[in-house]
Design a protein around this nucleic acid. Structure first.
Lengths: 100, 100
DNA sequence: TTGGTATATCGGGAAATTCCGATATACATT
DNA sequence: AATGTATATCGGAATTTCCCGATATACCAA
């Protein structure tokens, strides 16, 4: 993954908010039946609801964040759950500390 | 300074390269008379030469990086020198570790 | 199989970014 | 004052990003 693409993924207010929300899902989203935040994450619909943007836009934003390795996804039934990707974010932290 | 603006500043290959060059100026630029890298930084002309882009583009890129607090400038005579801004980069590192 | 719900993908108008050449400004030299 | 050099600013064409509605795909339930 190109460094520039990671920073592009972060260059948008809504996408930064999503990452913030996914850092503490229990504070930012209502309880979910049959899917705990820690293991699978938060479903697209909840993220979209919270963002106020359209379904298609949020779906695209989530895939941009995923391509940048900042989040990861799990499909369960008809739902896709996204959660923070610790490894990717740690890698970004290392980039900041070594390249800049 | 808005977080989004910081990441936008970093969303460009040339601007990332400039930050990398300014991290170790002595490895990336020829000796400068009357201005040491540590205190004042590297003059615009040298950065432009190394980048291969036009003078106007590099001047603009440097001011984008400066607005994001990632570099700072000093004018001496007809030259402007830019150097890495340690504090701004440390602040960015904290953003990564707390907001994402 | 039919209909319903969740998400992904497509096509596109509007706005932002990239990078340029031309020009303006600032300072030094003669 | 006039000229030369370093940098900043302006105007703009080409490309990319933002965000939407429409549509496609995937899965579930009856």
């Amino acid at each position: 993954m190109d460094q520039v693409e990671i920073f592009k993924a972060l260059s948008n207010k809504t996408r930064l908010q999503i990452l913030g929300w996914l850092k503490e899902p229990e504070l930012n989203f209502p309880e979910q039946p049959n899917a705990d935040f820690e293991n699978v994450g938060v479903c697209v619909g909840q993220i979209q609801l919270k963002s106020g943007l359209s379904q298609s836009t949020i779906s695209e934003y989530l895939s941009i964040l995923q391509r940048a390795d900042l989040i990861s996804s799990t499909r369960i039934g008809q739902w896709t759950y996204y959660k923070r990707n610790k490894e990717g974010i740690e890698k970004l932290s290392k980039i900041i500390n070594t390249a800049l």
